[in-house]
């Protein structure tokens, strides 16, 4: 496992990368709309339910683009298996306070199979677990998107790091990803959970106030997220991630790399000749 393979299972074409980038930008705007919206403070602002319907469409377009031109059967099978394992891990760990194992395999999978695979795996894992544990709801597309980013950035980490440093890097990333995921999902839920300040009606001091200056809203949001999640769930998730990656990471990486070696997609050019430069079996 010292030799880190440079190739990845689902290569991201330039076109797919552009689509993924655009969709990420849109997603970010949809998550952070309370901080971006310039509204008239005297008017009633409803949470933009439009976004709840729009994001699934965007996700569908991205997934269609990444799998455009066909996904290799081996990659697909591994994607299915990893999504299932992830869904089970999430289901198993959901009940235990803060012990969410969702990201552990997602990060390792993204690391081994590359950013494109990581993104798709993040989406499918959350989707599969939602189907399993009654988690389908308006939040799901946003969770899928953010989990997709977690997997994607795991795949974009520097490839040349290996051995113990690789684990250190992944642990650090795992902690970062846990907090970032919590923060982004909080940003999404904030206007829904606390409501939006409506002129004429009162609301909480932490609610989103349309039309208020950006700093004011940011401040409210930061206090909200510190109060609600950072002390509890997010930190629990970060610790679980770090521990799981540090302790199980090396063994699971070996296993994943063995699978990756066998699931390597030969490029068309190589197959058409009669000599396939595949892995040599011992």
């Amino acid at each position: 496992m010292s030799a880190v393979d440079q190739r990845v299972a689902v290569p991201l074409r330039l076109r797919s990368a552009v689509v993924l980038g655009l969709a990420s930008l849109i997603g970010l705007m949809m998550l952070g709309w309370p901080l971006l919206l310039e509204a008239d403070p005297t008017q009633r602002v409803d949470p933009p339910f439009l976004f709840l319907g729009l994001l699934p469409v965007i996700l569908a377009v991205v997934l269609a683009e990444i799998s455009e031109g066909g996904m290799d059967a081996r990659v697909l099978a591994i994607l299915g298996v990893l999504s299932a394992v992830n869904a089970v891990l999430r289901g198993v760990s959901a009940g235990t306070a803060g012990l969410e194992l969702v990201f552990f395999l997602l990060i390792l999978g993204g690391r081994v199979f590359g950013p494109g695979f990581g993104f798709v795996l993040g989406c499918t894992s959350l989707f599969a677990s939602a189907l399993m544990t009654a988690g389908v709801g308006p939040w799901l597309p946003f969770q899928m998107l953010v989990a997709g980013w977690v997997g994607m950035f795991a795949g974009l980490l520097p490839r040349r790091v290996s051995g113990r440093w690789e684990i250190v890097m992944l642990v650090a990333y795992g902690v970062l990803a846990a907090y970032a995921y919590g923060l982004l999902m909080n940003l999404w839920g904030w206007p829904f959970i606390l409501g939006i300040q409506v002129p004429g009606q009162d609301s909480t001091d932490l609610s989103y106030a349309p039309g208020a200056p950006l700093l004011e809203n940011l401040h409210r949001f930061v206090v909200y997220t510190l109060l609600t999640s950072t002390g509890g769930w997010d930190t629990g998730r970060a610790i679980t991630n770090a521990l799981a990656i540090a302790l199980l990471g090396p063994a699971v990486l070996t296993t994943l790399r063995r699978a990756a070696r066998r699931a390597r997609v030969e490029r068309r050019g190589a197959v058409s000749s009669r000599d396939v430069a595949g892995p040599t079996l011992p």
Binding site: A73, R74, R262, E266, V271, S272, R274, D275, V276, A277, G278, P279, T280, L281
Partner: peptide, 26 residues
Amino acid sequence: VPAFTGGTLTGDVVIDGESVLDRPAR
């Protein structure tokens, strides 16, 4: 083989007089 296993294949696979060596399983 060799698409799923790697390795080097030479010779020819013929179905009804037509070579299918370059065609994958699907």
